[in-house]
Design a protein around this nucleic acid. Structure first.
Lengths: 150, 150
DNA sequence: CTGCTATCTTACGTTTACGTAAGGAACAGA
DNA sequence: TCTGTTCCTTACGTAAACGTAAGATAGCAG
């Protein structure tokens, strides 16, 4: 069984793909674009290994794409900030100073906030659209009721 | 000035594109797919003319695409029902019988309801995502507060 | 009628986001 | 060590949704 030195479970691309619901090709493509840490430790030509954090990240990407309709290019923009936090996250384990840990968290927060902003914006648009549709429906039903038919 | 027999204003493709915020190519493409009434009265090889209803329809299509991420193919599915209501709408003007008018409205309602369903489904997914992001943010801030730094 | 501008059709080009096939290593189990 | 999976890289293929260019027409202004 494959494990890290810290005893963390590692997954191969087949498991990950199955689990997240994307193809292996998609995962490789995302990695190629730098959306996943290409810095994943593995020998060139050997099997990729993913941590739970990697899987969570992948899920996040898929969601941002499906729900918000972001392009992979736009995800790359968002990812740059995320990469930093990914990098910082690696330092987290070895970091013992509170000051450094605080710095790490502080750097990661804006990324999440940005995503929330995008979600909220989309929610507003949807609410607007919903209101219009509801109105339309109400008016149609009213007109229907005013007609002289059983 | 170009008008219909009922005095309704008609628009050329340039105006429509500018107005709605899409290219002329997009409009022609949508028409080609049957998303807009290809039954628009015009001589082959002559200029297309659009009514306000056409413009509203186009706006609706664009929104369904951007907000819900529907493919043009999926829009075509939705459109079939809409075509019927489009067709019925034409008969509306000339229809005087309450019974017929009621029939027309009743046929158009399910189409709007279907769109509302799609909007609601998307809203639920977004709310879920929002909750997760908010949680994440809260936890990060809490951890930050518990660290021994000013 | 003339000229100018907006549209028309036709048709090939482009980008995004993967799909898919080929040939060859890497792993895991017996 | 053998062997059947699983994964690797490389590279060409593809579907969707338009972009773009060319040459011809239509419609309006004077």
């Amino acid at each position: 069984m494959t494990e890290t030195t810290t005893g963390e479970r590692l997954y191969k691309i087949g498991e990950v793909a199955e689990d997240v619901g994307v193809t292996q090709r998609t995962i490789r493509y995302y990695e190629e674009l730098g959306l996943l840490g290409a810095d994943r430790a593995r020998l060139k030509g050997s099997h990729r290994l993913f941590t739970d954090a990697d899987i969570a990240r992948l899920r996040e990407l898929v969601r941002l794409r499906k729900l918000l309709g972001l392009s992979l290019d736009e995800l790359t923009q968002l990812a740059e900030a995320a990469h930093v936090s990914q990098y910082l996250r690696a330092r987290w384990e070895t970091s013992t100073e509170d000051a450094e840990r605080a710095e790490i968290i502080e750097a990661a927060i804006p990324n999440v906030e940005r995503q929330l902003d995008l979600v909220h914006a989309r929610q507003r648009s949807l609410a607007e659209f919903e209101a219009e549709l509801t109105d339309k429906l109400t008016r149609m039903r009213e007109r229907l009721a005013h007609l002289d038919t059983p």
